[in-house]
Simulated assay, not measured.
Amino acid sequence: MPRQQQPARPARRRSYDQFCATARALDSVGDRWTLLIVRELLAGPRRYTDLHADLPGVSTDVLASRLKDMEQGGLAVRRRLPPPAAASVYELTERGRGLLPVLTALAAWGAPALGERRPTDAVRAHWFALPLLRALDGLTQAGILEVRLPEGDFHIRTGADGEGGEVYGYGPVDRPDACLVLGAEVALELGRGACTLAEAVGDGRAEVLGEGPLAVELRGGRCART
């Protein structure tokens, strides 16, 4: 009689096994690609195929594995959209959204390493949101700022509009409160704190469109240098 095959045991996630908050955090997000998936989901719910398209270089197996780990770790959930969409999307939980300051700090720390773009470097417009969030942190006016780069458009929620939900999102929006037009290099300079938005607007390297309170504040240079 053939020996009955035992069901495979689920693989145990690796742990540093250290009673340390940093080690525990890395148990959850220290694997390759996990924080970049968080970066994508900070902009809102996304389908698996969209995540794969905006994470060049990740294999389908690794992406599926990381998403499963994030669900088990309470960082993300998968839900079904109602008709007519009828598609499944992944979105961050409140705990997952709590990683925004971590990603913003990492972007600030890594910005000096972004010199000349390499021929092998992929780029997406919304990847510039995290550096810009640091530069716009001093804004007091709540609203939606549409950012237009040669690489594409995305939008940022400023002030109170950014509380409790997605702080930035993909693509343009209808009737933004202001528009910011600039190049990638200027966006990175702003993120590094090498210049203020008022300075970039003043020397013509950035342009603010709109006449509402948010646009006025952006032109007035009330964004604090960080």
Rank of each mutant, 00 (worst) to 15 (best):
residue 114 L to Y: 01
residue 96 G to Q: 04
residue 70 M to W: 08
residue 71 E to R: 10
residue 155 H to E: 04
residue 141 Q to I: 13
residue 108 A to M: 09
residue 166 E to R: 12
residue 158 T to M: 04
residue 115 G to H: 10
residue 125 A to G: 03
residue 113 A to W: 05
residue 162 G to N: 07
residue 100 L to D: 02
residue 131 P to T: 09
residue 153 D to N: 15
residue 151 E to I: 11
residue 155 H to W: 01
residue 103 L to Q: 12
residue 86 A to V: 10
residue 124 R to Q: 11
residue 101 P to F: 06
residue 174 D to P: 11
residue 148 R to D: 13
residue 96 G to T: 04
residue 89 V to P: 00
residue 145 L to T: 08
residue 133 L to N: 02
residue 120 T to P: 09
residue 148 R to I: 12
residue 173 V to W: 02
residue 80 R to H: 14
residue 115 G to P: 10
residue 173 V to L: 04
residue 121 D to G: 08
residue 156 I to P: 00
residue 88 S to V: 11
residue 112 P to L: 05
residue 113 A to N: 11
residue 103 L to K: 08
residue 80 R to P: 13
residue 133 L to F: 05
residue 148 R to A: 14
residue 156 I to H: 00
residue 155 H to S: 04
residue 169 G to K: 05
residue 125 A to L: 01
residue 121 D to W: 08
residue 175 R to V: 14
residue 103 L to D: 10
residue 87 A to I: 01
residue 101 P to I: 03
residue 89 V to C: 04
residue 114 L to C: 03
residue 167 V to W: 09
residue 88 S to Q: 14
residue 78 R to Q: 14
residue 71 E to Y: 11
residue 152 G to K: 02
residue 90 Y to P: 08
residue 146 E to Y: 05
residue 99 L to D: 00
residue 134 R to D: 05
residue 162 G to A: 09
residue 106 L to E: 10
residue 165 G to Y: 06
residue 104 T to S: 12
residue 128 F to S: 10
residue 168 Y to M: 11
residue 128 F to E: 08
residue 68 K to W: 15
residue 104 T to V: 12
residue 65 S to A: 09
residue 95 R to S: 12
residue 173 V to F: 03
residue 156 I to A: 00
residue 112 P to G: 07
residue 110 G to N: 11
residue 107 A to P: 00
residue 148 R to C: 14
residue 163 E to Q: 14
residue 112 P to Q: 05
residue 147 V to F: 01
residue 74 G to D: 06
residue 72 Q to R: 14
residue 120 T to M: 13
residue 133 L to G: 03
residue 121 D to T: 09
residue 143 G to T: 00
residue 81 L to V: 01
residue 147 V to H: 03
residue 128 F to H: 07
residue 160 A to Q: 13
residue 146 E to M: 07
residue 142 A to V: 03
residue 107 A to L: 05
residue 135 A to K: 00
residue 127 W to K: 02
residue 159 G to E: 00
residue 152 G to R: 03
residue 147 V to Y: 00
residue 138 G to Y: 10
residue 119 P to Y: 08
residue 103 L to Y: 06
residue 136 L to A: 07
residue 107 A to V: 02
residue 175 R to G: 12
residue 126 H to K: 06
residue 143 G to E: 03
residue 158 T to P: 01
residue 69 D to I: 12
residue 165 G to C: 04
residue 88 S to P: 12
residue 158 T to F: 02
residue 99 L to Q: 03
residue 156 I to T: 00
residue 90 Y to L: 07
